[in-house]
Design a protein around this nucleic acid. Structure first.
Lengths: 346, 346
DNA sequence: CTGAAAGCGCTTACAG
DNA sequence: CTGAAAGCGCTTACAG
């Protein structure tokens, strides 16, 4: 490994001038052009690579951001993470990726080592499984001045930066749409309601029902243990076996909708003739399904890049004022999985 | 930020004993139990967090690995990355994620800054777009002693560590299966063949044809610009419009198969009655499709964790001998998208 | 049992 | 125009 001192030796200068020249401060510091050239050239010859760790230790910035998300399974998060990485890289930052499994302890451990690694900031879709690290994060933010932006999930009534979609509105519009099509028995496949985002979708569902004077039927609500395909499949299977009557189905996300669709087909029912279905997320694949899925788009690409930009603006003190709280507007994307209610006979 | 010196002051000891105690070397260094307790306690009181950057500078290890992949779009890579992160975290390492967009220059820039950041090792699914960074990586590996393991894609005839699936065999078995079902006109949707992995799948396709004395028909080969759904859709649409006759279709990956399926259905054809189709990857979703897709599973979970384990073993010198070259055995997963050829009339 | 000191590779006043 | 020196927060011989 070759160091500033090596270059200083070869050029019979000193580490300070070498450092200045290599950081482009040569002219500002009035180093003679000749010296500058000599230094630049030998740096190239020796294939000098600055040691960023040493640099970080003194300037106290690492050009690194920590990204904490529960997992990479839902297809939605990888899309967000990908966009965070892209914008971060464009702006000269690297991303340390931590999967927290939606567990309090894992998340805490990650936060701690990220701080020890002197990350410049953190983007987090925080665990909402029992205990919470929010106050812990906020303490850190105060004490260590590490900016934090919440993405996809945000703490309730917070003063912090976040970028989320309006989950309640998205769900509301989805259910509204089903109601307008004439449906009265609309089942809902919820995820764990301890997760705020999903709780809000549930609220949107109930609100739409209420506003249209439809009764809320508990038997049509399934709270799944997770938001995966298999759970979507199982829960609809169960719903059907229990003989509950519904002509439409709203699901907490697309992946669950895909699982649910399979159960519906397996029961010999058709989409949308027998049951209409609306998802949430608008992941890439759903428009390619045999019955393209009507769903709620939550602008995941904007979500990732907005979060990264806000964080980096904070780090670079381009924003210092009030909380940046972006609530993206969800968009109902109507495709082929819903039909007007014709027969009320199911 | 509180430092070793702060603790040394408060406990009227010295930074060296504090450092020793905090790293658990207290007893080994025969520090009195009383002193140890005092130090441990004040560390806790002051909420001491070690500065890993400083530590890394002296010990020359960062407990960080760099993971370079082209993108997060194909669903396959997020699964691999997720598993790398999981095993790395279990073993005390963090992951810096870099998306290279399959571009030579992006990849080089990433490699450079990763080295400057003193990562302990690199896992890479390398760009294969024109120029290559392989020799560059190997140079680095020699000079800086940074272990590298290739995942998913590997250089030809290399002495390096890698973990890939046997792409040729997977494709061969897929096509073989179609042939056994009686198909003779089997179209192939290839990705860019500059990508070695995809080239090998193409070879497997040709080999199966050849072994069964089937003629290779260039008109049934489409080389897509990328391996995305949209391209799968477009290429089949084109194939159909051009009036080429095929009763079966093998695709370079599942996502392309999904796009292709849509085009087939749009043309009023049925899967598998009119055309049989086999994909590659076995991503989560394909078993939930209306017609569950027959595909080649490439054990992506093993792939990620194997790569991480090999890399970390290298870093920790648990392996020092010959190249670790893992070739996973692909598994044909038979579902519902293929049928025996009955009529040769299409 | 404990502490003083060198050193990791940088940056940054400061002095000349 | 250029260099000596302190310091970032650690670890690690080494001395006593």
């Amino acid at each position: 490994m070759i160091t500033l001192e090596d270059i200083a030796d070869k050029t019979t200068t000193s580490v300070s001038v070498v450092s200045d020249v290599l950081r482009g401060k040569g002219s500002e510091k009035r180093i003679s052009q000749i010296t500058q050239n000599r230094i630049l050239e030998t740096a190239r010859e020796l294939n000098y690579r600055p040691n960023r760790v040493a640099r970080s230790l003194v300037i106290k910035r690492t050009k690194t951001i920590g990204v904490l998300v529960p997992d990479m399974e839902t297809q939605f998060l990888p899309e967000v993470v990908g966009d965070i990485e892209n914008t971060a890289r464009e702006r000269g930052y690297h991303v340390i990726l931590c999967l927290t499994e939606d567990k309090f302890e894992e998340e805490k451990a990650c936060i701690d080592t990220l701080v020890e690694r002197m990350v410049d900031g953190i983007i987090i879709s925080h665990a909402e499984n029992g205990d919470s690290n929010i106050k812990y994060l906020m303490e850190l933010k105060e004490r260590r001045k590490i900016p934090v932006v919440f993405v996809n999930r945000s703490p309730a009534e917070t003063e912090e930066d976040f970028v989320i979609v309006d989950n309640m509105l998205g769900a509301y519009e989805a259910v509204n749409y089903l109601i307008k099509l004439g449906h009265k028995n609309i089942a809902y496949l919820s995820g764990p309601t301890r997760i705020s985002t999903l709780q809000k979708r549930f609220t949107g569902y109930k609100k739409a029902l209420e506003e249209h004077g439809l009764k809320y039927d508990e038997r049509l609500i399934m709270e799944l243990p997770d938001v995966k395909m298999e759970s979507g499949y199982q829960s609809v299977k169960q719903l059907l076996e229990e003989g509950h009557t519904f002509t439409a189905l709203f699901t907490v996300n697309d992946v669950v909708a895909i699982g649910a669709s399979k159960a519906i087909r397996d029961a010999g029912l058709r989409i949308p003739e027998d049951v209409s279905i609306v998802g949430f997320d608008d992941i890439k694949i759903v428009s390619f399904l045999e019955v393209p899925l009507t769903t709620v788009n939550q602008q995941q690409h904007t979500m990732g890049s907005d979060a990264a930009n806000i964080l980096i603006d904070r780090i670079e003190k381009k924003i210092t004022d009030e909380p940046q709280q972006i609530v993206l507007k969800p968009q109902l994307v109507i495709r082929k999985s819903c039909a007007a209610l014709k027969y009320n006979t199911m």
